[in-house]
Design a protein around this nucleic acid. Structure first.
Lengths: 210, 210
DNA sequence: GTCTATATGCGGATAGAC
DNA sequence: GTCTATCCGCATATAGAC
C-alpha cells in the first residue's frame, strides 16, 4: 500500500512540474529526481509519461464535469461570480492542460479528442447557465445573444489564464488570481445585466478596479 | 545568390510545418526532408533551429506592427471589420506563434519577452482604436468600458484561432475563416454600437449566422 | 517496491569531402 | 552550396539485482 502513496506522490509532483515548467519541458527523469526516487522506480508505477498525463487529464475532466453539472442552477450575479471563480480555480490547478494544449493533442491525440468533447460539454453548460440567467431576469438577451454569450464565457474561461501570461506585469504575480479572471469574464455579461441586478456588479468593479 | 533562394525556401517550409504540426513536433531533419535537402545543408543556412524560429517571429512582429500603426485610423464599423480581418489573416499565417506560445517562450525565452512587448503594443493600438470609435460616434462607451473593450479585442484576436481548434466541428475545415473570427470579435463591440452604425453589423450577422 | 545499469532512438549540431 | 557521415546528449523505456 506504500505503492499507492508513491503513485499519488508521482501524480502530485508531475502536476506541479507540468504547471510550472510546461508539459514538454518536464522529463520523467526530472519527475523522479524531484521525488528523490529512481527513473526505474517511476517506470514501475507508470509505464510511460503518457499514462501520468492521462491520469491528470482525467482528474481535470472530472472536476470540470462536476462544475458543469451545477451550472444551470445559477440564479443571480453572485452565483455566477462563484461559478466562474470555482471554474478558474479548477483550470488554474491544472493550468498545463489548456496552456500546453497544442503540444498535448499533438503528442497524445486521444486526449485532444477528449479535450474537444469537454469543450462541447462546457458549451452546453454555459448555454444552460445563460438561459437560466435570462429566465431569472438577471440578464436581458435574445436567444441569439445568450448563445453568443455562452460561447464567449467558455472561450474566456478556457484561454484567459494562458493569455494573462502574455500581458506584461500580470505574470509577475506568478500565481493567477481567479477573482480577477472571474471579474473580467463578468464584464462580458455586463452589457446585458438588468438594472435590478447591477448592485453586485458595481460592488465587484469597486473591488477590482479600485 | 542561389543561397538566398534556399534560405527563403527553408523559411517557407518551416513556417508551413510549424503551422501544420506544431513547433515542438517539427525537427530540423523533418524540414530538410520536406525540402529534399540534407540536414547538413540546412545547418549551413541556419546554424540552429532557434534562428529559423527567430526569423519567422520577426516577420510576424513586423506584420502586426504594421497593422497596429493604422489601427487608430478606424472611423466606422466596416473599417473595424477590415482591420480585424487583416489581423486574423496575419495571425493565421503565423498561427504557430500564439498556438505554441507556451513551448516557444519556454524554449526561447527572449522570444517570450518579445511576445509580451508585442502584446503591450497591441493593447495600446486597440485602445487607440476604441477611442477613435468613440470619438467618431460609432460606439458609445465610457473610458473604462473602452479600455475593457480594447482588452477583450486583443484577447480575442490573440487566442481565438487556438480556441477554435477545441470546438468540435470547426477544425474540420482545417483552415480558419478570418471572416468568421472577425464577426465573432465584432459581437464584443456590438452592445456599444450606436443606432446609426448598426447597419453594417446587421449585414454581417445575416452573412455569418444565415 | 526500489534500485542500478543499460538499450534504443531521435534531435541538434558538426566535420570534412565534393 | 551541398552532400555524407558522425558525434553528442537527452528522453523514453527496459532488464535484472536487491
Amino acid at each position: 500500500m506504500a505503492s499507492l502513496k508513491t503513485r499519488e506522490r508521482i501524480l502530485q509532483a508531475s502536476l506541479a512540474l507540468f504547471n510550472a515548467q510546461g508539459l514538454a519541458a518536464v522529463s520523467t527523469h526530472r519527475i523522479a529526481a524531484e521525488l528523490g526516487i529512481s527513473p526505474g522506480n517511476l517506470h514501475y508505477h507508470f509505464n510511460a509519461k503518457q499514462l501520468i498525463v492521462e491520469r491528470l487529464f482525467r482528474r481535470f475532466e472530472e472536476r470540470l464535469e462536476l462544475l458543469n453539472a451545477s451550472a444551470a442552477n445559477v440564479r443571480a450575479i453572485d452565483d455566477l461570480w462563484l461559478s466562474l471563480h470555482l471554474r478558474f480555480e479548477a483550470i488554474d490547478a491544472y493550468r498545463f492542460v489548456y496552456r500546453d494544449m497544442a503540444y498535448l493533442s499533438g503528442e497524445y491525440p486521444p486526449l485532444g479528442q477528449r479535450a474537444q468533447a469537454l469543450t462541447a460539454q462546457n458549451l452546453l453548460a454555459a448555454k444552460a447557465l445563460c438561459e437560466a440567467l435570462v429566465a431569472a431576469g438577471v440578464i436581458e438577451a435574445t436567444a441569439e445573444e445568450a448563445q453568443m454569450l455562452a460561447l464567449q464565457i467558455v472561450f474566456t474561461t478556457t484561454c484567459w489564464l494562458s493569455f494573462e501570461r502574455l500581458v506584461p506585469g500580470r505574470d509577475a504575480l506568478q500565481q493567477a488570481d481567479p477573482g480577477l479572471a472571474a471579474y473580467y469574464t463578468l464584464t462580458l455579461v455586463s452589457p446585458y445585466v438588468s438594472r435590478e441586478s447591477r448592485a453586485y456588479l458595481d460592488f465587484l468593479r469597486g473591488k477590482y478596479l479600485g
